[in-house]
Design a protein around this nucleic acid. Structure first.
Lengths: 213, 213
DNA sequence: ACTAAGTGCAACACCGATGTCTCACTTCTG
DNA sequence: CAGAAGTGAGACATCGGTGTTGCACTTAGT
């Protein structure tokens, strides 16, 4: 095995291809986790061979996507000040951010599932971040659910459902922008699900009028 | 239409095989929706060829399973008196029944998803039954969520999560029997998620704690 | 107990998805 | 501008899951 020196400089367009593939994969896999590489390449506007050039195997692509996803989650957790801000505020902000990422939540949800389908798990760091948030929410009395793991599951499950909700659903009515409405619904629903009284709670902040900020 | 292959008269033997296959399929597919027919046959203790004898194709098996599932849901909806009983009671009873069915909720969840994966939809009748229940819940002021479709999605999603929750989760503590604990958690969680304040449950438990912390 | 139906086993063809390779062509980069 | 790196297109091998068939054997029904 000769010490092969791979080019340190990746050509700009190659990097762009990689990005497009990952983006396309996120989109396509969000809808159908069993989508073909052909389908993904198609969505990315590239040839299937190119996908194989950038990613040695389907699994490699999945891994890379998972990694990217986890990084973004991690970034979101950080940006939402999950560890320092008032937990209810942090939850709302996090939800906003996650929706803003526009990443396939169906795929993201699969991160919580076992690897039987070939999907790796949510990174321990990201899980820990979420756990911290829910622990703080519990301590603050904003929710009654005790175990962070359960909260995480519920959060991700509802995230998926809200994401998949048709834009013209009556439950999305109140807010002006659609994203805001989704965040609103999501926020309300998780808090309720985890035993917190979202809208009328004195400790909770009420995002009724201007939810996006 | 029934997807089963029945030449003339079905031998009791064969019928039993069919049942075992359907049961095995429900179990296996609940964990991995992409499981092999081999895997299913294995679980049923039968040869793969036999599966093909009873069901012309994988899709046929899926259809039959879906049909069976829908029938059970329908039976549960009826048994829970969704149309006449006080809606909150009906919800609790329905949840009990559905958990009792021990059907793969992961698979059941897929019923709500699009047919991209080859999974057919929840039958209109069953959907209508659920819709009726949630409409009545809304009218009774037990929940604030307006659209039955959204309620349905949340209900099924949470059903899946509660089903997949490890038996030793701290959130399952209160009740004596595990099933009861799951029903309890499920009941509390859906009502909360849909904007209702979880009342004293029919089983006598008080799920809400005073926010003394 | 006799017969028809059902099953296990193994072999086989088939199909779709994955992964590899080559070659002509395009696009970066220095 | 020139060479290197990247790409598209297509052919090709491979692999796993599906569906079929034949044959020996077991089981149910009357």
């Amino acid at each position: 095995m000769s010490a092969e020196i791979r080019p340190k400089r990746v050509r700009a367009d190659a990097e762009r291809s990689t990005a497009r593939i990952l983006a396309a994969a996120a989109d396509v896999l969000a809808v159908d986790p069993n989508a073909t590489l052909e389908r993904i390449a198609d969505e990315a506007g590239l040839a299937r061979a190119t996908v194989h050039r950038r990613f040695a195997s389907r699994q490699a692509l999945l891994d890379a996507l998972t990694e990217q996803l986890n990084e973004r989650y991690l970034g979101g957790l950080d940006q939402a000040r999950v560890d320092t801000a008032p937990p209810v505020i942090a939850l709302y902000r996090l939800t906003e951010i996650v929706f803003d990422l526009k990443l396939g939540h169906r795929f993201a949800m699969e991160l919580t599932a076992d690897a039987r389908t070939g999907f790796p798990a949510l990174s321990p760091e990201a899980a820990a971040g979420l756990d911290l948030l829910f622990t703080r929410l519990h301590e603050a009395g904003a929710i009654t659910a005790a175990s962070p793991a359960w909260c995480r599951r519920v959060y991700l499950a509802l995230l998926h459902e809200v994401d998949r909700l048709p834009a013209d659903s009556p439950d999305l009515a109140p807010a002006a922008d659609e994203m805001g409405a989704r965040v609103e619904l999501m926020f309300r629903t998780v808090l309720g699900a985890l035993g917190g009284s979202a809208p009328q709670s004195p400790s909770g902040h009420r995002p009724d009028h201007s939810p996006s900020q």
